[in-house]
Write a protein that binds this DNA or RNA. Structure first.
Length: 520
RNA sequence: GGCUGGGUAGCUCAGAUGGUGAGAGCGCACGACUCAUAAUCGUGAGGUCGAGGGUUCGAUCCCCUCCCCAGCUACCA
């Protein structure tokens, strides 16, 4: 059984989960579930990035010890993932002893490699860093952040020139090897638009980066002191990024999280870290590289962008409560192309819910089950589905397959599109064959058998393929059709035989709300 | 400023190595049907394919200029 180890970005424990977090996790969850149903041995890693100055500051502002603060945030995130049906296999936290020990291990691995290199080529070296420091932000500012000689966010403060002595990582030495990586393996980073940006960056050449910092201590102590004896704190690159690699050092995960991962799912804002710094670190440590980095787009709300640090304008609770978790997952995955940006609006949500879920899919389920009950006492005839219709269905399913692990991989919205084609085509088929007319004359019994078997089979495929998107609702549909057990165990790469299944009509899968929802 | 990708029906988008009538879904209008969640099916609506110029027998798709949008341009994560 092929394994598929995928990760999502670990979320910064500085606030509550919002729409942007949800998009990434739901997308990764759908990708993971699709792979499970295609027979992969899947390991989905999710977690929290809990160190750094901001977390320490926020905790202090709330008068809480930092560990207690991040424990609380982590619990909130995990509760949200549970609520959203995000089924991860491992939840990693950078404050875990296992992670901290493994970070030190990775750094030591690089030092070990350095031992055989001439001094001017060693990955880690000490250097003074001089920059303009904003007291307001408590961080160094880059030229882009500076307006008229002042920090853009604290224009009343004076920027101070501050010098720090740190451990540095010789990122500049990897420019050529990274170029080679992208030349040899273009799909290392997708989508292509993001890859182009990184290639451009590499053309400009890379600067070395800090590996340790002195101004905060909420983090992993850098394993080696500076020559002056100071022990500094491991900087974010060497603390957060390695979580994908340190996951296997947690008890019970040595095999499941065995390095390398097949896929890193990240937001487009952190592409550079994952496709330049992270591979360089791994090269320095002599570790294999992850299979692929997939940089998804963002979702906006009324034109305002969501990011990890943006304010919350829409609570996930509101979005979930409107039409239920599964409808929310469907809407996000269907309307936000994973390789592009999308926007959230209540009007659009309602439109998608009514059109796709209630009218096309939900109603197809209702009418099909009703007819099987009415005309065949609830038993799906053991006839072969109609050949021509299924030939068309198979084309759609092949497209869906390609959107999982084929040419168009990691595009859940295309899986959804293909299955909606199946549903629409099946509705047309009903209209064309008019089973209610066939049912009036017993001479048409064989023909009616074919039609009803075709409907049940079409729906079973919809349920199986859309289960990764809407786990609960598709389980209900599957059960209504008479499918046994867990729809999540239905294989997508094998035919589904529905002959003899006992259908049972329930309440509508996607009921329309009694009163129209409030406008945005 | 530099670089990259875009600007196609009301909305979200697909598409053509340049050539009979430019497509899909949704929304809308009209018609059909009744198995079904007043659902479904069919038909239609006529969008200067961002603006101007050029190449060509012919461009929305090629070239040039311009306008607009998004992203990237490296130590908050």
């Amino acid at each position: 059984m092929p394994r598929f180890f995928l990760t999502t970005a670990i979320d910064y424990a500085n606030g509550e989960p919002h729409l942007g977090h949800a998009l990434e996790k739901i997308g990764a969850d759908a990708i993971a579930r699709l792979h499970r149903q295609l027979g992969y041995d899947v390991h989905l890693l999710i977690g929290m990035d809990e160190h750094g100055q901001k977390v320490a500051q926020t905790a202090e502002a709330q008068g809480v010890p930092p560990q207690q603060f991040v424990d609380n945030i982590a619990a909130i995130f995990q509760a949200m993932w549970a609520r959203l049906g995000v089924r991860y296999d491992q939840f990693i936290r950078t404050t875990s002893p296992e992670h901290k020990a493994a970070v030190a291990r990775l750094i030591e691995q690089i030092f070990a490699a350095d031992a055989s290199l001439p001094e001017n080529q060693r990955n880690f070296y000490e250097r003074s860093y001089t920059g303009l420091y904003c007291v307001g932000c408590e961080s160094f500012k880059q030229p882009a952040d500076i307006v008229d000689g002042k920090c853009a966010t604290h224009p009343t403060r004076t920027l101070e020139e501050v010098t720090e002595h740190n451990w540095f990582f010789r990122l500049s030495a990897y420019t050529q090897r990274l170029k080679q990586l992208f030349a040899d393996n273009p799909s290392f980073l997708e989508p292509e638009s993001r890859r182009n940006e990184i290639l451009q960056l590499l053309e400009q050449g890379l600067d070395d980066i800090s590996a340790s910092r002195s101004r905060f201590d909420w983090g992993v102590p850098f394993p080696r002191p500076l020559s002056n004896g100071d022990v500094q704190t491991t900087y974010v690159w060497f603390d957060a990024l390695p979580n994908y690699w340190t996951a296997r050092f947690f008890p019970g995960y040595a095999d499941k999280a065995a390095w390398p991962a097949n896929l890193h799912v990240i937001g487009k804002d952190i592409t550079r870290f994952h496709t330049v710094i992270w591979p360089a670190m791994l090269m320095a440590a002599g570790e294999p590289l992850p299979g692929q980095v997939w940089a998804h787009g963002f979702i906006s709300l009324g034109g305002e962008r969501f990011s990890k640090s943006a304010g919350v304008k829409l609570t996930l609770d509101e979005a979930i409560e409107r039409y239920g978790v599964d409808a929310f997952r469907y809407y996000l995955l269907r309307d936000v192309p994973y390789d592009g940006d999308g926007s959230f609006s209540w009007e659009r949500f309602e439109e998608v819910y009514n059109s796709d879920l209630a009218n096309t899919l939900g109603n197809l389920g209702s009418r099909s089950v009703a007819m099987i009950e009415k005309y065949r006492a609830g038993v799906v005839p053991a006839a072969a589905p109609e050949a021509e219709l299924f030939a068309a269905h198979r084309v759609s399913l092949a497209q869906a397959r390609a959107a999982v692990d084929g040419e168009r991989r990691h595009r859940p919205n295309e899986v959804i599109g293909a299955l909606m084609d199946v549903a629409r085509r099946t509705n047309e088929y009903i209209q064309r064959t008019q089973p209610w007319v066939l049912a009036k004359d017993p001479a048409n019994a064989a023909q009616l058998d074919v039609v009803l078997a075709t409907l049940a089979s079409s729906l079973a495929h919809c349920a199986a393929w859309l289960a990764p998107v809407m786990p609960d609702k598709m389980q209900v549909l599957w059960t209504q059709l008479g499918g046994s057990g867990d729809v999540a165990h239905a294989r997508l790469d094998k035919p589904i035989d529905v002959g003899g299944w006992h259908v049972s009509k329930g309440s509508p899968l996607f009921p329309k709300p009694e009163t129209p929802p409030a406008a945005t």
